[in-house]
Design a protein around this nucleic acid. Sequence first.
DNA 1: GACCCCTGTAACAATTCGTAGGATTCGGGA
DNA 2: TCCCGAATCCTACGAATTGTTACAGGGGTC
Lengths: 233, 233
Amino acid sequence: MTDAPLIAILDDEPEIRRLLSAALEEAGFRTVGFARATEFEAALRRIQPDACLIDLGLPDRDGLALVHRLASESGAAIIIISGRAQVQDRVTGLELGADDYIIKPFEPAEVVARIRARLRRPQRDAGPGRQQVRFAGWSADFDRYTLTSPEGAETPISHAEAEVLRLFLDNPRRLISRAQMLETLGGTAGESFDRAMDVRISRLRTKLGEDPKNPRLIKTIYGAGYIFLAELG
Amino acid sequence: MTDAPLIAILDDEPEIRRLLSAALEEAGFRTVGFARATEFEAALRRIQPDACLIDLGLPDRDGLALVHRLASESGAAIIIISGRAQVQDRVTGLELGADDYIIKPFEPAEVVARIRARLRRPQRDAGPGRQQVRFAGWSADFDRYTLTSPEGAETPISHAEAEVLRLFLDNPRRLISRAQMLETLGGTAGESFDRAMDVRISRLRTKLGEDPKNPRLIKTIYGAGYIFLAELG
DNA sequence: GACCCCTGTAACAATTCGTAGGATTCGGGA
DNA sequence: TCCCGAATCCTACGAATTGTTACAGGGGTC
C-alpha cells in the first residue's frame, strides 16, 4: 500500500536501463528492467508497475502495439521513450494511449519529474486487488459491492449504482455534466435514457442517506449536471 | 450543455492564442483565452476549465507561482508552454505541479494530442473546496451552493444566483454595467433577457436579507448598472 | 416453474428560472 | 416643488429540468 512506486523499464540497451534505474532509485522509486517485450509481458502477470517506461523501436515486437494493449488493459502510467523525433510519431504515440512521450537523448532528471507528474494523479488501477475507497466517513467496496456507513452499517449496492459512485469518486468536487455521465456509463445519447440516470442517482442518494431537501454529498446543478462533495481518504 | 471539454489558454501573444484555439476547436474542444494572469484568475471563479495551457514568462506575474497555486487548488490539467528549454526549467515546472511541459515553438497537433492524453485519465482531486469567499460577515460556498449569514444561518442558492454573486465577488466596489453582466453570464444580448437579470438580482438580494428600500450590499446605480459593496476577506 | 433482485420506463410531484405585466422609483425640466 | 417618461423592482405564471415512486420485463437461483 505504502510501498515505493514501482517503475518498469523496457529498453534493449543495457546502458540506458542502468542510467534510468539509477536515477529513479535515487529519486525513491523501485525499478525493474526488461530487454525484450516478451519478457516484459510475461512479468506483467506477476508484477503491477505504477508506471512503464517503454522504448519504441524494440527488436522483437512493434512497440506501439504494446503501448496500445497496455493502455487499455493496465492502469499504469505509460511513458514512451523514443529516438524518433517527428511530430507525427509523438502524436500517434499519445493517441494510442501513452501518457507522455520523451525524446532521446533525454535527461534523467526530466524523466523523473515527468514520472512524478504522472503519479501525482490517482491511478485507475485495473487489477483485481482490493477496490476500497473511503469518503466522508463512508467506505465503498467495489469488490463486494457494499457501502458502509460512518456508523458501520453495511448495505449492498448494485452494479449500476457502483458505476455512478465510481464516476463520482474519480471526479470529486468537479461538475459532471449529464452528457459526460451518459458517455462514461455507456448510455447511447438522447432518448429517455437520461431518465435512467436520474433514477440511478436517486437510488444511490437514498442508500447514502441523503436528505432529499438538502443533499450533502451529491448535489445537483440545475441545467448543468452534478457535483460530488466529499473528501477522499 | 457542457459536453466538450473546456480548455483555458493563457498567453500574452494574441497570435499564439489564435493558433492554439483554432487547433483545439478543430479537435472538438471549447476554448477560452486570456492575455493576463489577473484576468485569468478572476475568471477561474466563474468557469471551470478541464485543462489550462499556460505560457510562462507573462508580463504581469510570475508564471510558476500561478502554476503552483492552480495545481493545489484546481482540478484542471495544467500544461506549461514555454520558450525556456533548459532541463532545469522543465523539472521545476513539473515539480511545481504542472502535468506537462511543452517547448516553443510547438506543433499544434502535438499540443492537442498531449491534452487528450491528460484528459483520458481521471482528474486530480480538486482540493478541499477552495471555492469559499467571505464578505461582510457572510460566507459563500460555491461548491455546496450555500450562503451562510453572519448569524450562521445557511440557505441554499441556485446556480443562477451563484453566477451573479460570483461576478460581484470578482469585481467588488466596481460598477458593473448591464451589458457587462449579460456578456459574462452568457445571455445573448438585447431582447428582454435583461429582465431575467433583474429577477436574478432581486432573488439574490432577498437571500442576502437586503432591505428593498435601502440595500447595503448590492446597490443599483440608476441608468448605469450595479455595485457590490463589501470588504472581501 | 416460483421467487427475488436488478434496472429501465412511465407518470406525477417538486424545483428552477425566464417572461410578462403592473407597481414603484429615479432624474430632469417646468 | 410638482410632473412625466424611463429605468428598475416585484409578483405571478408557465415551460423546462429534475426527483420520486410504482410497475413491468429480464436474468439468475433454488
